[in-house]
Simulated scan of single mutants.
Amino acid sequence: MTSALEKYYATNYSQCNLEYNFLASWKGVAYPSHIIQLISLPFQILAFYVIIFKTPISMKNVKTSLLINHLFCALLDLFLCTVCTVYFFLPMYGMFFVGVLSWFEVPNGVQLLIVWLSMTFAAASYVYVFESRNSTLVQNKFRMTQRRTRVIFYSLFLIPCLLAVFVGKVIPEDQDAAKLFALIEYPCPTREFFTSEVLILFADKTIIEGVVRFFPFGCAYISSFFLFQVATLIYYICIAPSNTTSRDTQQKQKVFLICILLQTSIPLFLGMCPIMLTFMAFLTGHYYQEMANLTFCSLGLHGMAESIAIVTVHRPYRKAINQMITDLKKRKSSIRVSPISVHGTSNSVTRG
């Protein structure tokens, strides 16, 4: 800490009378996130296995999109829970990281870029799930049959990545002055603000107001790509199906549509709701550090929810899991029976 921060910590901060709270501390986001990753890992591996080896021929045209979606969701979970675990000060637009990369003193800016890219590509993979399915419908007038069209579409979607470079340019170079500015806006943060290498993203009221106003627009912009593909798929499967498609095929298409809607909506709902609730609490002046920590912990649950959704909503994957469980039970029972049969045989031989 600089002399100005030390003075503030010794005088002004002592009047805050903040009691230690595990959930508000760095441990409150680091430890639960690491535990979540350990619990999620088996489900993620299982989802990889069933997609690669148990996808039936009827789902072959969506196998690649499901695998890509699961890959980026698993990577996002890995970065948020283990590699670049985030401790975020929302009222002060500051952060530091408590993941594995922080042990190697990787700069906060680099870790921020990694998290941002992982979130962007995970969001794009959800769009790709529906877009790839749309492209298989011959009657769909909006399907993308040319590589050029698909490149333009996803380039427009990835505009937030370009904005990340712009955000890097407005990050204050004088971080000590930025921290003092942040303390004026929020005078009583947790002690981690003084004991950790915090990165302040914004220290200008004009920029902060612009970010607050842009946030809903950015969410709407990203959501529009996803909603367009979903709406198009619903229209051409449920409202205006092809006349050349049999009723049996149409019914299978509707069932699969419901499955991918459930598969994608469950993890998206789990991830987006805490973010929106925390942001609304911040705008209304009812923000607490515990809320930010719980938000990032809930984001870490996204990968596990996505993995469980994959292996449960799709019937072929459920059957594969049930068969694996049945085979495992048979192996256990055979192991228990075989020593008895061998013992019985040896006794009969002895008596003979």
Rank of each mutant, 00 (worst) to 15 (best):
residue 30 A to G: 02
residue 2 T to S: 15
residue 47 A to M: 08
residue 160 P to V: 10
residue 130 F to W: 08
residue 331 R to D: 14
residue 290 E to K: 04
residue 156 L to Q: 06
residue 283 L to N: 09
residue 86 V to F: 01
residue 309 A to I: 03
residue 6 E to S: 15
residue 271 G to L: 08
residue 278 T to I: 12
residue 172 P to T: 06
residue 57 I to A: 15
residue 250 Q to F: 03
residue 56 P to Q: 10
residue 275 I to H: 07
residue 213 R to S: 15
residue 38 L to A: 14
residue 332 K to P: 01
residue 227 L to G: 01
residue 117 L to N: 08
residue 165 V to W: 09
residue 12 N to C: 02
residue 304 M to R: 07
residue 249 T to C: 06
residue 213 R to V: 05
residue 11 T to P: 03
residue 111 Q to G: 07
residue 21 N to F: 02
residue 154 Y to T: 02
residue 312 T to N: 06
residue 220 A to M: 13
residue 122 A to M: 12
residue 83 V to H: 05
residue 216 P to Y: 09
residue 136 T to P: 04
residue 198 V to C: 05
residue 333 S to F: 10
residue 146 Q to S: 15
residue 59 M to V: 01
residue 191 R to S: 07
residue 32 P to T: 08
residue 89 F to Y: 15
residue 189 P to N: 10
residue 26 W to D: 10
residue 170 V to I: 15
residue 172 P to Q: 06
residue 35 I to R: 06
residue 83 V to A: 10
residue 269 F to W: 15
residue 107 P to V: 05
residue 181 F to M: 00
residue 299 L to C: 03
residue 19 E to I: 11
residue 218 G to N: 11
residue 41 L to R: 00
residue 263 Q to N: 13
residue 108 N to I: 03
residue 281 A to I: 03
residue 63 K to G: 01
residue 230 V to W: 04
residue 183 L to M: 07
residue 318 R to M: 13
residue 302 H to P: 01
residue 348 S to W: 07
residue 142 F to I: 02
residue 249 T to V: 14
residue 128 Y to C: 02
residue 303 G to M: 05
residue 176 D to S: 13
residue 98 V to Y: 01
residue 221 Y to H: 05
residue 213 R to K: 11
residue 102 S to H: 11
residue 22 F to A: 09
residue 319 K to H: 13
residue 318 R to A: 10
residue 202 F to Y: 13
residue 30 A to P: 01
residue 276 M to P: 04
